[in-house]
Design a protein around this nucleic acid. Sequence first.
DNA 1: GTTAACGTTGACGTTAACGTCAAGGTGGAC
DNA 2: GTCCACCTTGACGTTAACGTCAACGTTAAC
Lengths: 135, 135
Amino acid sequence: MSDVYSISALSQEFDITTRTIRFYEEKGLLQPARDGQRRIYSAADRTALKLVLRGKRIGLSLEESRDLIQMYKPGGDNAEQLLLVKDKVNQRRTALKAQLNDIKTMLRELDHMDSRCDAALTVANPMAKATGTKS
Amino acid sequence: MSDVYSISALSQEFDITTRTIRFYEEKGLLQPARDGQRRIYSAADRTALKLVLRGKRIGLSLEESRDLIQMYKPGGDNAEQLLLVKDKVNQRRTALKAQLNDIKTMLRELDHMDSRCDAALTVANPMAKATGTKS
DNA sequence: GTTAACGTTGACGTTAACGTCAAGGTGGAC
DNA sequence: GTCCACCTTGACGTTAACGTCAACGTTAAC
């Protein structure tokens, strides 16, 4: 429950290099506090880092993740800002839904290929049982 | 229903440059036939290209897409090959399911942010109606 | 027969996202 | 006080995925 972290602690937790973490700071994705020279990461910084890494896993660029993090933050702006954020949120949501469909389609195709492999294997060796990995 | 395509026809259809298509060939993702010098793309080539582009949308590298395309192809190999393919298929499937969960989580968070924007807007201006974009 | 549209092969440039290495500061353990 | 593990800031290198440009072949239209 120590709610501050060193750079190496975060790098170990998420299995990334310290260089990567510093790089994210260069790009404006993180703004850790300092103790003298040393970087001190808060729980919020850690959360932001998690967001970036999840963003990477789903194919977002660092710039896109930075925008998302920005949207997460202040919240209490004027109406114009809020509408702009809402718009961006909805754009991203539309993109994610499309991506979700792409993934579902590919999963169906992989299921299909798996079945066909099983079929071919059964023909080659009717005694062996297919390993059930589906769903 | 013309089942062959020129490089520019495909580039227009998918809104990519001809350079990109040639690059994919360099990387072994496409192997179009030739009419003299000219590249001739079959329906199968076109399908492979679609797979690559979908792969990109969901964050796959070209190398990963090439592997997937390879798995789609022959089918009638020996048992050892088939088991290897089955294994790769299942690895990819596991990864895609994880990615699917990441996306669903992010979609939920975006929904949440959208609601909070609406709430903040309603406080600022109780008369205006929120634009329903959800689900 | 020449022009315009389309194609070809290099070859070099660019951007994102880090890796790698050098040179040095710093704080606690002994 | 002197290691040593950890941290710092540069600065240059690298890989993937193309963009861009030059120089040239080809073919259907006029």
